[in-house]
Design a protein around this nucleic acid. Structure first.
Lengths: 144, 144
DNA sequence: CCAAGAAAGGTGTATGTACACTGTTTATGA
DNA sequence: TCATAAACAGTGTACATACACCTTTCTTGG
């Protein structure tokens, strides 16, 4: 007889998070795309505005994403003239900052993020979200 | 004066889920890789075992992933001889099922999934996880 | 001072994701 | 019946992820 395995996808922490994350990213992306930005581009421009001028490695740590992934994503932003790189005194460090148009398009996208966020929170409840977020953060601490 | 924006990454539902999902996927992947399987390969083989023989579209709906993404991921499994395709009477449908070696390697990976899952649940608490999962499922229903 | 190592970043390669579009096969209703 | 629509799947293209490996630049301890 074959072992019953249907509990695995139902219970697997990674699978369920990945699935929900995909759907949520899609939800936000469809709205934020109206600004001309991809979802990831929005995240990056926002993070750059918060920390600029900032090196690639530092930004990767802030966003908790792989440095080489970030590096390539930033390269696309540079190609679209949304960010600029410049060297620091330390010649190893490539500092990134928003360009004029990067700043402009980010500003235009902020209300779209609000719209997506509010669509979710109005239906899910802000308190429920904060509780969920707390729980997720505990989970994160466990695996790092 | 510049508007304060640091609440956005802290609060954004999509960003926080994506980040946690990445970390969790990495956690499971490192363990499951010891079987020779990628994390996604494990998911797919498992789902195929649960539903085989199953068409690509049906499998995509079960897994809630994009059909074309699934199609290409399955192509890699086929290339590695872990699954087989065969046509149904309905010539449009390509049914997929596990090969001998696909079955074997999946069986060998199951204890590794248990290991990863238990590492998380032992530290996080099964009840906490079920509560979190409930909340996530509510969130999913809201956005679909 | 300077050799060894650490830090920053890039490249090669492979996998994963998803939208727009296409072709083929089956179902359906006027 | 047969034109039209729906269902199934593949391809083109672009973006996103991440590991292994490399070079360049700085730091540090003997």
């Amino acid at each position: 007889m074959k072992k019953e395995l249907s509990h695995i996808p139902k219970e697997c922490v990674a699978y369920n998070f990945t699935k929900t994350a995909r759907h949520l990213a899609s939800f936000y992306r469809k709205i934020i795309n109206r600004s001309g930005l991809q979802g990831m581009q929005f995240q990056l421009l926002l993070a750059i505005r918060l920390y600029e001028p900032v090196s690639i490695s530092v930004l990767a740590k802030k966003l908790e994403i792989d440095r080489t992934t970030l590096s390539r994503n930033l390269k696309r932003l540079e190609k679209n003239a949304l960010v600029n790189f410049e060297n620091a005194e330390d010649q190893r460090i490539h500092n990134v900052q928003l360009s004029e148009s990067g700043n402009k398009i980010l500003t235009s996208a902020l209300p779209l993020w609000e719209e997506a966020q509010n669509l979710i929170l109005d239906r899910f409840g802000t308190d429920n979200w904060h509780q969920l977020l707390d729980s997720m953060n505990k989970l994160e601490r466990i695996i790092s």
